[in-house]
Amino acid sequence: MDRFIGHGLTCIRGERLVFSGLGFTLESGGALVLTGPNGSGKSSLLRLMAGLLAPAAGTLTWNGEAVASDREAHGGRLHYVGHLDAVKPVLSVMENVAFWANLRPGGGPAAAEAALAVFGIEHLAGVPGRFLSAGQRRRVNLARILAAPAPLWLLDEPTTALDRAAVATLEAAIASHRQAGGMVAAATHTPLSLGSAQTLDLGAFETEVAA
């Protein structure tokens, strides 16, 4: 049973206080949906959870251990999907996914191939990234997180550019990830149906700014 806890988190971007005093608890099988208006800090919170950003105050712990104390270990147990798809235009879809899978324990060409099949892009395996549409690129990026196991998924607007079928595939992938004991934190504008998810409304922490 893994436990990922944020406590008293404060985030400052540039000279702007984005949120403060924010906390959450995620356990194996759990899901956290981040909502709130533009600029309320959904992306910032996900980057904070990933360790790309350092909190100005507060702590993030994984099973009681501070995340900041071992960045590589934390990086190894999470998958982050940001606004950019990290698809190299000159590499084929398979090469793109396999590279990221090979960097991680438990990932390999076979897993990459299976991941492409899940998102229905196995026929594109040999196609260079520059020929892909935005939705296809996004599916390549999502296949990347299936190609190597990691308990924590951090998804920032994962449904961008996806059609309805692909959204359903993503929902199914998240559900089976949670069933296997994984956890998910996702920021989204469009409804993403995740069974029994906690919701964190970042708009509620925004009042701090005006104070």
């Binding site: 790309l52 590589e72 270990a73 950019l84 990290a86 190299k88 960097l103």
Partner: peptide
Amino acid sequence: YEDGSLELLLLAPLPL
């Protein structure tokens, strides 16, 4: 940096 790969490299399980 521009295509987002750098973020993922920062999160890769090996020292930066």
